[in-house]
Write a protein that binds this DNA or RNA. Sequence first.
DNA 1: GTCTATAGCTGGATAGAC
DNA 2: GTCTATCCAGCTATAGAC
Lengths: 214, 214
Amino acid sequence: MVKTQATKPDWREARRRSARDAIVVAAWTLVEREGLAALSLRDLAREAGISTPTVYAYFDSKNAIYDAMFGQAAEQFTAYMAAIPDSGNVRADLAAALRGFATFCTASTPRYQLLFQRTVPGFEPSAESYAHAVAALDIARLRLGEVGVTDPRQVDLWTAMTVGLVDQQISNDPHGDRWLSLVDDAVEMFLTHCLPTSTSTSPTRAATRERARR
Amino acid sequence: MVKTQATKPDWREARRRSARDAIVVAAWTLVEREGLAALSLRDLAREAGISTPTVYAYFDSKNAIYDAMFGQAAEQFTAYMAAIPDSGNVRADLAAALRGFATFCTASTPRYQLLFQRTVPGFEPSAESYAHAVAALDIARLRLGEVGVTDPRQVDLWTAMTVGLVDQQISNDPHGDRWLSLVDDAVEMFLTHCLPTSTSTSPTRAATRERARR
DNA sequence: GTCTATAGCTGGATAGAC
DNA sequence: GTCTATCCAGCTATAGAC
């Protein structure tokens, strides 16, 4: 009575999910070690302790695996960015957001490449997975809006600065903080440019210099 | 008498060079059409009108072809950057250099990827080819120095801004000028940040605004 | 669902006749 | 130098027994 037929599909689905997850975990382990493009189904099966055809019992194709990875990464991204607190201080919050973004990106190069660069040959994320990523990027845009930066050109300038810092950091100093350490400087430079009549709620280096000049 | 044996090796070398060049030309045609990573020796041979083994008569390996392409690209780069004139106006010259760099990069995506990103799997440019590229980048650094920006941190900020603009332009608006059109803005923002006591030789928007504030 | 075995393809690189 | 023919390695994906 308790165990009706309706409960049975639930296990199955649960087991299926955890088996899928195990494969995706193995995939991350591999791409972290060998590079995103170097993922092969043979290696993946070996890493996961199964045979190649078994992979196909859970994923229709190699791109389906990339898509699952993309979805997972996008989820992590939204969670990470949403967890950055708002203090009310314009410069501090923007700097925190940028630093958070950069930290997230540099924490895993293949994750960054999968999510933000288009380095995998024939792969396009599914609409569902992609929506996640776009939503998180819009959060960043909203944050800029709250600060008072709404001119699309200025938003473009911001994104350029952002990806520039992250890109240089990842490709020229993967394990250091040479460009990461410039985040405060960059934010100050950007806001001084975009908001000449400063509206920040606490003193900053720029505001201090401004005052000293009068 | 006139035709000594010494002249014979000259033709040979000349013919050999032009044959090599023809192969490299075919390679550029292909990567421009199919992407840098998609270059295969079969396709290359077909495009060049020869057979696959013949390619090996001129290049030891596939990477040797990439290296020849890299060398050519580096040469084009130095020539292009050296041709940008100096006017003596700090902001204008820096903007011209940045615009030139961005224009050069966006003119050919695979060339940009080969020169500045490390997207080809096992390929490292030979020391000789690489020296060319580094020399050109140092010219840009010198230009910054002349302007009065010598703090390494500020140089890093400049390079981040530069690659950010180019990267966004290439990956999000390949045939437009959405980020290219921000060059003047970016230069103004950067110089205002780095040289608070402006030393530019002609009025700029920033200087004008500065004056208006007093 | 899981395996062994293998198909089918594409890649770089080589042998050997001419 | 140039070709035809081929080797060998790697890949994704499938067939079919259990």
